[in-house]
Design a protein around this nucleic acid. Sequence first.
DNA 1: CCGGAACGTTGCTCTGAAACAAACTCCTGA
DNA 2: TCAGGAGTTTGTTTCAGAGCAACGTTCCGG
Lengths: 231, 231
Amino acid sequence: MPKLDESLLTGLPPFSLLERAQIREILDHAVSRRYEEGTPIFREGHDADRFFLLLDGYLRVIRSTAGGDQIIVLHISPGQLFGIAPALQRDTYPATAIAAAESIALSWSAKLWGDFTASYPGFATESYKTLGQRLGQIQETLTEMATQAVEKRVAAAVLRMVNQSGRKTDQGIEIAFPVTRQNISDMTGTTLHTVSRLLSAWQKDGIVESTRKHIVVTDPHALVLLSGAQG
Amino acid sequence: MPKLDESLLTGLPPFSLLERAQIREILDHAVSRRYEEGTPIFREGHDADRFFLLLDGYLRVIRSTAGGDQIIVLHISPGQLFGIAPALQRDTYPATAIAAAESIALSWSAKLWGDFTASYPGFATESYKTLGQRLGQIQETLTEMATQAVEKRVAAAVLRMVNQSGRKTDQGIEIAFPVTRQNISDMTGTTLHTVSRLLSAWQKDGIVESTRKHIVVTDPHALVLLSGAQG
DNA sequence: CCGGAACGTTGCTCTGAAACAAACTCCTGA
DNA sequence: TCAGGAGTTTGTTTCAGAGCAACGTTCCGG
């Protein structure tokens, strides 16, 4: 296995305070791996023996019910730590992570978490900061789910993906990873049928442009209004 | 202000590894306060300048939408840390905490969080463990909200309160703090009307017994079945 | 002891969205 | 190049649960 380059980590929040030598040290303990679209990185209930950093690609974090229904709890984008159950003293992962697009991630043995927080200034602080943001996001989604009508939720879900991964094209802003109607329904707790109808309607109104597994938002402002941003 | 007694903290997870002298030290920095039912301890968006430990009573943690709807994210029971936004490097509280019954809580300046985690063995570990559990709970609620029908959600919500605060009486297990229909609807994202109907129906079936702000579960097993525990 | 507020119950109506159903389109691999 | 599967679209039906309304009950302060 070739040595990983230091530039992979420089500039990322958890490592921003570190010396070059320290980053080297961290990388020497890391394992790098590529995941095809649809491949699980880890599964709900399995031994939480490693923690991860996404270098490239996008992930979906999923929870399933006993009845077989599933929902997408959040998305992970490049530069983020994930699977940090070990940081929370959990011995199993509470959710499943799946590559939404071809992805590359580093990972470390869970045992190293303690070493990292102890040895590297800023690492713990920044990690827990991320965790706090994530907790806030989930609470946000929860309130939304409990109080908002389907159309608002779907609009909000699309916006969230755009905000996290949007990149400009000539027609508008596109979501950088493949998304199916089913995926969106799993984010919003509705059916793919309803999502399909909504997207069709929005397309008619010139708000989005969508093909098979691909969505471009042509009128973000209209979508923000639909999402009910207190208007 | 009289000195607080060490026995208040002994045995609680975050402090279990500590010496008597260390507990003394921690208590000397603490402020103790009593809150009437309905009194807010802190509010969403306000400066997160303190963190708390509930000694007695029960709290509701609430989030509100711009549109004025609100939902109860979780309940806090005695012995739990709460308002630990400072631990996550947040400068405002992401939710509001309100006394569901008359309550007593200790609090410390947010600045001390760093000192506590640095000086007291096990404190950080135990705190983040709690946080992990809480994150798991919220994800659980989220999936439930997205996939389950109203009756199941309400049953699950009642069960959660019973598990957290249930105490045996001659007729069954009662929830130890006041709960209105509206409260339950705020936990489940439905209306108080629907909750009222459900409780009436359950009462008819001999599953619960409820008076004004008080609920006794007479047949917990039936409720578990209703909650859809994969049966 | 009275009046009003807070909480709860119940009946009725109506609609948003799930469920069911049936094609259609694109993509992939044999 | 053809078959099958994955993803999508659209129409129709159905119903759980929200909304509205009116009334009952308990509690508390003056």
